[in-house]
Amino acid sequence: MTSLVTPPGTGSSGTRRSGTRGTARSRSRIALTAGRGVGLLPFTLYVLLFLAVPTVIALVSGFQDADGGWTLDNLSALGDPLILRTIGSSLWLAALTSLLGAIIGALVCFAMMGLDETRLLSRVVTSISSVLAQFGGVMLAFAFIATIGIQGAITVFLRGELGIDIYQDGVWLYELPGLILPYLYFQVPLMIIVFLPAMKTLRVQWAEANLTLGGTRLTFWTRIGLPLLFPSFVGSFLLLFTNGFSAYSTAAALINQASPIVPLQIRLALSSETVLGRENVAGVLALAMMVIMAVAMALYALVQRRAARWRI
């Protein structure tokens, strides 16, 4: 990925384009193109310094020892059972919340089918979804502490009115399971945003054709609707997966004592950089995250191509 971050051709691509013949005219055009390329310099420099350089550092720091020499020793962290369990938990959390989020979100999209986009209900649902898909981090953590924290409204209500103690086996909100509900709170709205347009590609004519040919509502969904939507559904699921997998702030605000997921392990590694033998573990973990993200994104691109087949 980083190789593509290189400068957007400060004149070089223009030179290649016009420099085929060595005539005086094209040479002046080269000069002109190079001159015009100067306009790209500020952006190129900025992106190089603050995007390309940090990305390269994040990539290579896993292969460096404390003195900056090259080593593969850090990679042994990936064999550490604790780290492996953390990566497993991260994958599990991201997969679970994106699967549930995708199903619930798709249900909402189904409920909104056939609704005129200009209707108030439709506008409200999409607006709320775009707000909540953005709602994350510290404030989301507080919302859930106020809801199902030890003194949260729902906890108190269930304990006082119904005699149900949701924490009788211990307080799980500040551990891995406690992340599921807050994550769903941004995954479901995100699913609504990305899946609603896909639902709209189901054409009315197909439903009519199905009815004309003697099909029922059920056969429309089993034979036409679901098979056509499946690639988009998988694509949306993968987007939700990358979203859940890379989330940090919500978990950081909720969980202080432990580091059950990879982003929190990176926090631990960054804040305890001096612990012997753990230098640059953050780099290895970052590398592992990038690899997983890249796989998910590649799958997404693959699925997306298939989903595009039925678009007009």
């Binding site: 990925m1 603050f50 995007l51 350089v53 720091s61 890379s246 940090y248 973990l285």
Partner: peptide
Amino acid sequence: LEFICLIPLSLPAIVLVVGYVPV
């Protein structure tokens, strides 16, 4: 240009921060 601008979306902030620490 579009591709470059979209890169930060596929780089989690928690990964980017590992590179930002030395910077």
